[in-house]
Simulated scan of single mutants.
Amino acid sequence: MEYRTLGKTGLKISRMGFGGIPIQKIDEEGTKKLLHAMAEKGINYIDSARGYTVSEQYIGYGLEGIRDKFVLATKSMSRTKEAMAADIETSLGNFRTDYIDLYQVHNPSMEQLDQVIGEGGALEALMEAKAAGTIGHIGLTAHSTAVFERALELDWVETIMFPYNIVEQQGAELIHKCAEKNIGFIDMKPLAGGAIEDGTLALRYVCSNPDVTVVIPGMAEIRELDENMAACSNAAPLTEEELAKMDKVREQLGNDFCRRCNYCAPCTVGINIPSVFLFAGYLQRYDLADWAKERYSTLKVKASACIGCGKCEPRCPYHLPIREKLKVCAKDMGE
């Protein structure tokens, strides 16, 4: 396994890490087995989040006795100082540890980022925790290229997490800027939320980009761990056959995959279309129905509110049949 320095943090981490979403489907013992296997194979980066239901707790159980073998990262959607301070304490308790290596501001909008960095914002709690030694470093995650670009200019941001894969390349130039600015880049959704079926091909593509510091595929089984590690450890250049397969994946998903570019906005009735598709994907591809519906319930306007005006579709650079996809999401989500 190749190791990289995670940007300004100075942390030495494995090129492949562990994404903590899918372990919600298993249990504490299964997570412990997986983490011990990771430790034996030299994989030392773990990603979780306050919003991933039991993920932090399962990981904390699995880390008993081997905490020092891992760089531990999590994230919170809290935007105020008080709420972020509470989430940090909760994460420390869940992980059964007295420090977390990387704590990230989780997917803020531009307006929410203003709140985070303003007076009484979440950044104050993160800075205080960093000074106290309960967290080591501060990062940010995003789905919006506008937020990504802004984060590159914030001096407190030591790492940035963003989707990047065979079909989602809207952040490629910004990922390169991360490398230029010595900001660690953490690649989420390397399999496009499960839409790309060939995991080996997907991970080979991501790892072929030298600007990606670490890729974090979600895993719940030893079999997945072994397959993903084999793909990420293969440093051979991409073959013509692999490149042809990637083109085919783009062709197949090109008419049926949301890249969350948000060009479809504004919706006539206020539907956050990319978020609807994102949450529905957790149900449709990850089989995480309860968690997906819980997140979907936070949306002020549901997919069923679509009036079929069609104004969004000409704006979509990928020509998605948005209205039809919203109908499917409304049916799957129950509203």
Rank of each mutant, 00 (worst) to 15 (best):
D187E: 15
R285I: 01
C207N: 13
R15V: 15
Y3Q: 01
S304C: 15
A289F: 09
D27A: 14
G42T: 08
S304P: 13
D211L: 02
L140N: 02
Y58T: 04
L154Q: 03
E29K: 15
Q252P: 01
D187C: 15
G20V: 09
I186Q: 15
K248C: 02
L123M: 11
I26Y: 09
A73V: 02
R323C: 09
L63P: 07
F162Q: 11
P210C: 03
S208C: 00
T200C: 05
W291A: 12
M333K: 10
A73N: 06
P22C: 14
D290W: 09
M1C: 02
G10V: 10
G270Q: 08
K81F: 01
C261R: 04
E89T: 06
Y58H: 13
Y58W: 13
W291R: 11
T200W: 06
Q284G: 08
C261K: 02
C258D: 04
E64V: 08
R204A: 00
K81W: 01
P266I: 10
F148T: 09
L203H: 11
T74L: 10
I271R: 13
V157P: 03
K12N: 10
S78G: 12
H319I: 00
T97V: 03
S78F: 06
D98F: 07
R260M: 09
T145Q: 03
Y282S: 05
E324F: 07
P108R: 04
M77N: 13
S208I: 00
R150H: 07
Y164D: 00
Y286H: 14
Y296A: 06
K81R: 15
L225K: 07
E153C: 00
V328I: 13
D332K: 08
R285D: 01
V147H: 01
G334D: 12
M161F: 05
M127G: 07
L320K: 11
A132E: 14
G139I: 01
G19V: 04
T200N: 09
E111H: 10
Y296L: 05
K12C: 05
Y286G: 01
V167Y: 00
D68W: 12
H36Q: 14
G120N: 04
I100G: 02
P317L: 11
K81V: 00
Q284C: 09
E294K: 14
G93I: 04
S76K: 15
H143D: 12
M110A: 05
S78T: 02
G65R: 13
F279W: 08
F185K: 07
P22Q: 15
D247G: 14
R323I: 14
G7I: 00
G218V: 02
T298A: 14
K293N: 09
D332R: 12
I13A: 12
I166A: 00
R15Q: 14
Q252L: 11
I66S: 11
T200A: 06
H137K: 05
